[in-house]
Structure formats: C-alpha cells, structure tokens
Nucleic acid binder design. Structure first.
Length: 569
RNA sequence: GGCGAGGUAGCUCAGCUGGUUAGAGCGCACGACUCAUAAUCGUGAGGUCGAGAGUUCAAGUCUCUCCCUCGCCA
C-alpha cells in the first residue's frame, strides 16, 4: 500500500470559484485521490482557502464585515460548494489558521538564520485617510506620459507604460478616493532567492516526473534569473512578523505577504487535519519522520506552476530542513467559456454554486473530466455539455442500468437469475473487459484524465455491446436459461461499470452499487480474474432498478441556461 | 511590442523519440433490434493534418518564412 499526498492549488477566499477553477485543480485532484483510494492506497488529499492579502481586506470592507468574519463566511460557502461537488479532501483548511501562522513564522526565522532573509528600506505611498500603506496598484492618478486619468501606480492601462506610484500626477487612493497621500519609508523583509538559484535548478533538474509544461515554465523563470522578493506587507490582515517567537521590532504593523504564507498552507492544513483527527502530520511532510515513502502529487493551473516549481521550493529548500517536496505535478490549461474568458461582469460563465442549482455534481464532474483542459485550453459550451451528458451518462450508462434491471424485474422477479452456462459471448466480454480495464487504470495512473474518461465510456458501451450479442429478450421466449446467463452476466458487469466510475461520478456509482447490494468493502477498482468478477453476484440476490440515474438535458434547458449565463451569440 | 500555447474530418479532440492505406467520440447516412431514458448495436461517407519553402529514402511529426486564434507579460 503506497502513501500518496495530494494537494490542489488553494482557492482564494474572495468568493465562490467558477467552473474553470474547479476543472483546473480541485476536481482532477479529487478524481485522482478517489482513484488511488479505490486502488487501495493510503491517500491524504489536502486543500484550503487562501485567505490573506489586500483583496480579502477590501472585500470585507465592502461587505461591511471584519476580515475575520468575512473569511469565516466565505470559507463556509466554499466548503459547501466543494461538498456539493463531492470533493473528498481529508481536510479543507485555512491559511489563516494557527498552524499555518506558526509554520510561516518558523520558515521565516529559519530562512533568516540561514542568511536568506534581510531587512531592506523601501519608499511607499501612505494614505493618511485610509491609515495604511497602499499597494502600487491601489494608487491611481493621471499618467505623466499620456494624461490618462485613471492610471494605476504600477502601470498605465491606456498607454501601457510602466510606472512608479510616485510618477503619477494627482494621485489618489483607489480605496477611498482620498488625495491625502504621502511617501513614507518602510522596512520589509526580503527573501534572497538569488542566492538559491543554483540549488533550485539542481532540484528541478532532478525532478523526473514533471510534464514538459511544468519544466519549461520552471526553467524559463530560472533562465531569466530569480529576483529577491519582498515577503512582508504593510497590512493588518495576515501572519504577524516575529523574531525569536516575539513580535519583530519595527514590524508590529506588518504581516507576511500572502505569496509567502499561502503554499505553506498545504502543510498548515495538514496540521489542522492532524489536530482534528489525531493523525500524524509529520509522517506526511517530514522525511525524517516517515514521509520518505510518501509520493507527493500537486495539481494546479498553469498560472501557478512557477510558484510550485520555484517560489515554494525556495522556501522549503532554503530552510535546509527535511521537508517533503513535490514528486509529481499536474498542470492544467484554462477552461474557457465559448473560447473566451469567464467573466462575471459580462455574464459569461457559471460559478460552482450556480452549477449545483442546475444539476447534481456528478454531471459536472463527468463533463469537466472528459473535457478537461489538459493538452490545451478547452472550451465549455452548453451544446457540448448537453451532448456529453446525454450520450455518455443518460444513454450509455444510465440506460444500460435501467434496461437490464427492468428486464430482470419483469422476467426474473428482480433477483439475480439462476441457470444457463458460460459461453462464447461471456468469454468475449471477459476478454474485452480485461483489456479495457488495464488501459483505464494506466490512464488514471498517468493522470491522463481525458483518456481515462474515454476508456470508462468504452467500458460502459461494452455492456451494451454484450447485450446485443447475448440478446436475452429473444432467448427468453424459447430458452429462459440462455436468457438467464445473459442477464446474470450483464448484472455482474454492471458492478464493473460502476466501480470504474467511482473516481469520477461517485454518487451515481454508489447508487448503482446500492441497487446491486454491493458491500462497501467491495467498492474498489475491479482487479483480478475477469471470469470471477463476472460471476460474483450471488444467485437469488434481489436487485432493484433505482430511480432514473441521469435525466437528459433538453434543448429548452440549453436555451434557458445560455440566456442566463451566456452562450453562443 | 515581447513571451507562451495552439491551428488535424461538420463539432470536440488523440496522434511519444519522423516510417505501412492519418485515429477516437459526437453529429450525419444507411441497416439491425425492441429489454430500455425515441434508448442500444452494426456499417459507412467525410480530412491535399493553417499557407509556402526546405532537410530526408521517408514529415501531421524536424528547420525557416508568413497568416490566423487564444492567453500572459511588459
């Protein structure tokens, strides 16, 4: 039994995520976690909300809440949305939790002890009325080059030139609109990434199980040269800066930059898990305490690759402590909305909570897995969604379950029928099944989710092909025993169809397995000899048709949803 | 403007280090079947692999130029 640590990129606290965020990290991480669990491995799937930073502070102010209240509320909302999609994380933690605060301070102090952190003096715009320093992009004013009146402190959106906040004429705070600004000196801690460049490059060189996309992004950053980065900010909301465990002098009103503490949140959330469940978090993260046999797999969108291959490793490796680093890494491209960006303001796209109001999580899970943005960006369209759901889920899988269970109910009293002998058709099914299972398993192992879904669909279709050969409805008229072996085999095969579906559509798979009376302990990936798997159901066991598994998406639905959420034209 | 990804059947996409008649699913056409959610199964028609040039015995697969799309950055 292998031990597999899985993390998915942390969703930012600022509101429910849209389907693209789900498809690009949390969902595939979950599918992979579920697959490895049904394979019998010891899996720890960790996720958390990324809660610090200026956007959270501002959103809280807009909502008229304290940042803590705001984050509490948003965390619960995101947790519920995740539950609605059956995301099976072992822990859904928070970067604002105490364990993460402790760890973040620990890393900073260790890095400083290694000579990798130093204080530097900076000049920054302070808003007297807001009583705070302003991040560059929260200072606006008139561009000195083109006269554009709403240029940002880091760049002018009109002429595109790079700016310093002090370049702006008539500067004002984007937060309050106040013009009562001044430039003040402020000290910040800098992480000396330039000193770690060689070490990180060696580490990247040694990482064999990364896809080419990840490696090329990492090398691109390294080739351009790492820069020392400021890891503190003049904010109230965040991890307090300490020295020897006490507030650091001159940093009483500063916190660590969200960039620095967020990835540490993977570890922090694991500590939260351990505290809640009595688990041993160090056995997952410390190679000196048992984590040397752990395989660590990260899931993320392509925008996050640099942080996971360069920035976070700088923190981890720089500590020179025996922390577990990533082994396998899976990066996703974007899910687009009809080829363009998801956009709230332009009513283009669906958010996680809205999606669940339309249809159960399994529908979305199937679509977003079968159409995962793996090789390149993938487009969501209602028409494609409708096509995949109706064909794969309703017609191929759902209808199979319904047709055979109802036939069995009317002809064999709803029990697994006795009689008939294993023959040519059953041999054929067993052979095909063996090949397909092998392929599906390999695709899951390789984290090739589109291909895995495609193979699962083929496994489902194989059931219908078998029925066409076995044609129990015809044989029943002249030879009920010959019909019985067909029905019995079809029922047994249905357990295989459901078990391979467990990672992707866990609820529908469970409904099918419930109908067949399959014990929890048997709800695992189908392995072993085909014939024994196809003859496992006890003769005489009652099997009842469930409610319709998947209802079809009608053209009228597509029209209505396109109207509400955007679509073609 | 710079960088990155990509342009393969009507649609969505596979095609690793170049090598027999370029593949899948959907859609479409025809046929079969009737147990089933007008479902299923089978057969078939569809592509000068964005354009042009080059390297090679051999290129969708390498090189160069150009066109187009998307994203990121400055």
């Amino acid at each position: 039994m292998a031990r597999i640590l899985i993390t998915s990129a942390l969703p930012y606290i600022n509101g429910v995520k849209h389907l693209g965020n789900l498809a690009g990290s949390m969902l595939p991480a979950d599918v992979y976690a579920r697959f490895q669990r049904v394979m019998g491995h010891d899996v720890l799937y960790v996720c958390a909300t990324d809660e610090h930073g200026t956007p959270a502070e501002l959103a809280a102010a807009t909502a008229g809440q304290s940042v803590r209240e705001y984050c509490d509320e948003q965390h619960d909302i995101q947790k519920r949305a995740g539950d609605g999609f059956s995301l099976s994380y072992d822990v859904f933690g928070r970067t604002s939790s105490q364990p993460n605060i402790t760890l973040t301070q620990h890393f900073a102090e260790v890095l400083e002890a290694r000579g990798l952190i130093e204080e530097r003096l900076e000049h920054q715009v302070f808003s007297i009325d807001d009583d705070r320093f302003l991040p560059d992009r929260y200072v606006e004013g008139t561009c000195p080059h083109c006269g554009f009146e709403r240029a940002r402190g880091d760049q002018c959106d009109n002429c595109g030139r790079l700016l310093e906040p002090t370049d702006l004429k008539e500067p004002y705070s984007k937060i309050s609109g106040s013009k009562n600004l001044e430039v003040r000196e402020t000290k910040h801690l800098h992480l000396l990434q330039t000193k770690m460049e060689a070490r990180i490059r060696d580490w990247v060189d040694a990482s064999t199980e990364w896809p080419s996309l990840a490696k090329s992004i990492a090398y691109k950053w390294l080739d351009e040269g790492l820069r020392d980065r400021s890891i503190t900010r003049d904010l109230k909301w965040g991890v307090p800066v300490t020295k020897d465990g006490a507030p650091r002098e001159g940093f009483e009103n500063k916190v660590f930059y969200v960039w620095f503490d967020a990835p540490i949140g993977y570890i922090g959330a694991t500590v939260e898990w351990a505290e809640a469940n009595g688990g041993d978090w160090e056995s997952w993260w410390r190679t000196d305490k048992g984590a040397d046999d752990v395989t660590y797999v990260q899931f993320m969108g392509k925008d996050n690759v640099a942080f996971h291959t360069v920035s976070f490793p700088a923190t981890i490796l720089g500590s020179e402590e025996p922390w577990k680093t990533v082994d396998k890494l899976k990066a996703f491209n974007w899910l687009t909305w009809y080829g363009g960006k998801f956009s709230t303001s332009e009513k283009r796209g669906v958010f996680m909570d809205q999606a669940l109001d339309l249809l159960p999580g399994d529908y979305w899970r199937w679509y977003l897995t079968a159409n995962a943005p793996e090789g390149s960006d993938a487009a969501f369209t209602w028409e494609h969604f409708q096509s995949l759901i109706n064909t794969d889920l309703a017609n191929v899988l759902g209808n199979y379950v319904n047709r055979i269970l109802r036939f069995n109910k009317s002809r064999f009293d709803g029990v697994v029928p006795e009689g008939g002998t294993w023959g040519e058709n059953e041999d054929w099914l067993a052979g095909e099944m063996t090949e397909r299972l092998k392929a599906a398993e390999a695709h899951f192992e390789a984290m090739e989710f589109r291909k895995a879904a495609s193979e699962i669909r083929a496994i489902w279709a194989l059931g219908n092909e078998y029925l066409t050969k076995a044609e129990p409805w015809t044989k029943f008229k002249t030879d009920p025993d010959a019909a019985a072996i067909g029905v019995r085999t079809a029922l047994n095969y249905m357990t295989v169809m459901a078990r391979v579906a467990l990672p992707v559509i866990p609820n529908a798979a469970a409904t099918i397995l419930d109908a067949l009376g399959i014990a929890d302990s048997d709800r695992v990936w189908p392995k072993g000899e085909a014939k024994s798997m196809l003859t496992a159901l006890p003769v005489g066991q009652s099997v009842e048709p469930p409610e319709v598994l998947f209802k079809k998406i009608e053209d009228t639905d597509v029209a209505e949803w396109s109207e509400r959420f955007g679509g073609a034209g």
